[in-house]
Design a binder for these strands. Structure first.
Length: 804
RNA sequence: GCCGCUGUGGCGGAAUUGGCAGACGCACACGACUCAAAAUCGUGCGGGAAACCAUAUGGGUUCGACUCCCAUCAGCGGCACCA
């Protein structure tokens, strides 16, 4: 009788063994592999089984890479500055520094339950002054390069979090963190010129081994479009209005022009009799929130009384103001071609403006147009010298024609906006800038960094647009680092994303107080080979990190331009009916009890078994019994086989190589759920064989152990030791399958008539086509009519007889 | 509105990428062991009496379709007046 599987004792034993003798060590000879988790913010709620899954996936992958002979860099840290941590602290009435430290301790304990091979010597915490010294250093560098600048304009403002937000943090007009409706507030802001990198951020997506979905989200967010800027003169005036259009081919169809109410010329275009209406419209538009502006699908507008002149045919077209034109995209002014644009069509219909079709649909002009014809497919009509051209061709040529004729220029536009970088909150890195009445904005000298966040009693947001830091007079008052006169510190702090935009660089050299990361360490360990985390950061953290890395590349701090070579997005674990796990819904499943009752190995495997790792999965506790039973059966098989000590049969050898082959292939394609089912399947077959043979040979069991080690490391180690080894199971190399040893001499092949299976025959694997067909027909002789049309034999796959 | 993904038993899911649909597991039922239960082991488990019918629905290509093409429906996600 073999000893029963006691997960508690085994897991405790190996946890302490690994602490004494780590399994992932850098001997200086192994190649590196950097496998990174998106680091968590230390929430007070702790981890649930969904967080666990992400960390299990990355740990399984790390251990697999270890067995392939890599030194694996697998660090963990804390994204502890920012809104989530601060809002939690305010709710609990504790200072964020205190609650953050408590939460870190708690989550660290939970993470250790996963038994991942995290190297805690590399740990970083974004709130540690030794860390944020470099977050501030990067800002200073950006300031010196002209990439960080101040600007006052109406920004997105979350009235609940009482802070400004970046565009990326506004989701459907609401705050990404708290869901409150975002309003506008005119504020002086620090901005990062991410737009300068728009083209590189777009172009380099091609180099990345990332999910297409994420690449597409980024490229849509950057939003590149090709078109032309066209200059329209204003009838009776000197100024010109430049419009941006992606459809210069439709220029002859422009019947009016619309300016954003915020356009510089908007007010001055009003003729005396229109003045009142125009001013009212401009005022009303300025009062509208983003959400209102988004929700008002019904077009509004006002005619200025002025006319613009179409540079091609000198036609006079009325100039309107409307808030469907955005002030900060393109030139804030558009030419309107109602026949070929949905929005212009709706506007023209509402205000009774003429519609001129310039692209024929199916070779014809549309009678009684009821909607815009927006395809660029058709022949040009009503378009002067362009008549008869194909619109698709003209669309590409028109910008250059316009440029050549001096009417404007070919141009490119991006939807990406500069990054609103300052927050009116306490819990963040102070922006290291001094406002000097003589010198203007002066950065804190690099040798004086970090500029420490002062410890204060009152850290709640003020809501006035000022950070709580502004109230600390002794901190605000300072001397100008440049001229020494009385000056004031910048009181805004950096957003949550500041630290996370570069933390992955710091892990590998986290104690360096001279450099962000030394060249030596960077060369040795960076960049990240595999990055694992949720998809929710597609245009936030992942875009910001790419921008930061490119900047650091440009100033020579690192010598790669992309931080994350491969990205994997794990799916979310939800509660019943796909409802997101949350404390308020009461459907959170904590891993702690499951680890206690079933063991870490069982939970690790079940986390993967619930479904494809990239898809969302509904959690169901009951399923864990399945993997738990499997582990117990395998445990018994291994111990009984040790006892039986049988030698390998050809069947065992064949199965061993098939096992290696299947598991490796599934692992390589990241199909982790089928790796687990594969283990179960092979275990079932081995148990069948063991029933007859009395056991399984040592080599096959040991092979199974090595393959299983990344998934159930405790059991693998324990059995490895039972099998008489003193070194860790992770000292092994990942086994290789010998494909010739997997070959079957005889195979089963289905025999079909007209595509329907009628029999299954066993034939020799290298049988000739003729013999296969003869054998096949023999097996279904009673069903053959004698009227055979076609005979198909796909070697080792199928026999199909087609008959009438 | 535009773009993308997904749709297979009671449930989670598999299918070597066009070749026996439902692997593996959960749940369930029956049996063995037990005084009994749990645990464990064994058997069954898409529908249908059968011919056959079944991979969201309708069509198509093919000797052969969960897999490819067209249309439709449903669910999820992203973007959303970007000219």
């Amino acid at each position: 009788m073999s000893a029963p599987y006691n997960h508690k004792a085994i897991e405790q034993k190996w946890r302490s063994n690994w602490q004494k003798t780590p399994v992932n060590v850098n001997d200086g000879k192994k190649p590196k592999y950097y496998c990174l988790d998106m680091f968590p913010y230390p929430s007070g709620n702790g981890l649930h089984v969904g967080h666990w899954r992400g960390y299990v996936i990355s740990d399984v992958w790390s251990r697999y890479k270890m067995l392939q002979g890599y030194y694996v860099i697998h660090p963990m840290g804390w994204d502890a500055f920012g809104l989530p941590a601060e809002n939690y602290a305010i709710k609990m009435g504790v200072h964020p520094a205190k609650s953050t430290a408590e939460n870190v301790a708690n989550i660290k304990k939970q993470i250790n339950d996963i038994a991942a091979i995290y190297d805690w010597d590399m740990e970083v915490n974004t709130t540690d002054p030794a860390f944020y010294k470099w977050t501030q250093w990067i800002f200073v560098k950006m300031f010196k390069e002209g990439l960080a600048y101040e600007k006052e304009f109406p920004i997105n403002w979350c009235p609940s979090c009482k802070t400004g937000l970046a565009n990326e943090e506004v989701v459907n007009g609401c705050c990404e963190r708290c869901g409150a409706e975002v309003t506008k507030k005119n504020l002086r802001q620090w901005m990062l010129k991410i737009t300068k990198y728009a083209e590189r951020l777009l172009a380099d997506l091609d180099k990345l081994d990332w999910p297409e979905k994420v690449k597409k989200m980024q490229s849509d967010w950057i939003g590149k479009s090709y078109g032309a800027e066209v200059d329209f003169s204003i009838d009776g005036r000197e100024e010109k209005i430049t419009v941006y259009t992606t459809r210069p081919d439709t220029l002859y169809g422009a019947t009016f022009m619309v300016l954003a109410p915020e356009h510089a010329l908007a007010a001055s275009l009003a003729t005396p009799e229109k003045k009142e209406a125009v001013e009212k419209y401009i005022y009303d538009a300025s009062m509208k929130s983003n959400v209102d502006r988004l929700q008002d699908k019904e077009k509004t507008g006002v005619f200025t009384g002025s006319y613009a002149v179409n540079p091609l045919n000198q036609a006079k077209i009325p100039i309107w103001l409307s808030d469907y034109v955005l002030a900060d995209y393109g030139t804030g002014a558009i030419m309107c071609v109602p026949a070929h644009d949905d929005r212009d069509f709706a506007f023209a219909k509402k205000f009774d403006i003429p519609i001129i079709q310039v692209i024929a649909k199916d070779g014809k002009e549309i009678e009684n147009m009821t909607q815009a014809y927006t395809d660029a497919n058709g022949t040009m009509i009503h378009s002067g010298e362009w008549n008869g051209m194909e619109s698709a061709v003209l669309k590409k040529e028109a910008p250059h024609i316009i440029e050549k004729r001096g009417l404007g220029k070919a141009t490119v536009n991006y939807k990406l906006r500069d990054w609103v970088f300052s927050r009116q909150r306490y819990w963040g890195e102070p922006i290291p800038i001094v406002h000097c009445p003589k010198c203007g904005n002066v950065p804190v000298p690099e040798e004086e960094l970090p500029l420490q966040l002062p410890n204060v009693e009152s850290y709640e947001p003020t809501g006035t647009g000022e950070s709580p830091l502004a109230a600390i007079e002794e901190w605000v008052k300072c001397k100008c680092p440049s001229c020494g006169s009385d000056a004031k510190r910048e009181t805004n702090t950096m957003p949550q994303w500041a630290g996370s935009s570069w933390y992955f660089l710091r892990y590998v050299d986290n104690h360096n107080d001279q450099e962000l990361v030394s060249k030596e360490k960077a060369d040795q360990y960076l960049p990240v080979d595999m990055y694992i985390g949720g998809v929710e950061h597609a245009v936030l953290h992942l875009l910001y990190s790419r921008f930061y890395t490119k900047f650091l590349y440009d100033i020579g701090a690192v010598d790669f331009e992309e931080p994350f070579h491969k990205l994997f997005n794990q799916g979310m674990i939800t509660g019943k009916n796909g409802i997101k796990m949350s404390k308020s819904k009461g459907n959170v499943v904590a891993p702690d009890d499951l680890v206690r009752d079933y063991g870490c190995d069982s939970l690790r495997m079940y986390e993967l078994f619930v479904g494809p790792p990239e898809l969302d999965a509904e959690w169901d506790d009951r399923g864990i019994d399945g993997v738990s039973r499997f582990l117990k059966r395998f445990w018994k098989l291994a111990l009984d086989s040790k006892e039986a000590n049988v030698s390998a049969t050809p069947e065992m050898v064949k199965l061993r190589h098939k096992l290696i082959y299947d598991i490796t292939q599934r692992l390589e394609s990241f199909s982790l759920n089928t790796v687990i089912s594969g283990f179960m399947e092979y275990n079932n077959r081995l148990m069948e064989i063991a029933k007859k043979a009395g056991g399984i040979d040592v080599e096959t069991i040991e092979t199974f152990l090595i393959l299983m080690a990344p998934f159930a490391p405790h059991m693998a180690e324990e059995l490895w030791e039972v099998y008489g080894h003193t070194a860790s199971v992770f000292e092994n190399q990942w086994p290789k399958a010998d494909e010739s040893a997997m070959k079957d001499d005889e195979i089963e092949v289905p025999v079909q008539i007209n595509g329907k299976t009628r029999a299954v025959i066993r034939i020799s694997a290298d049988i000739s086509k003729e013999d296969a067909l003869t054998a096949g027909k023999e097996a279904i002789a009673d069903k053959l009519t004698g009227n055979i049309v076609k005979e198909i034999y796909v070697p080792k796959k199928i026999i199909n007889i087609v008959q009438k």
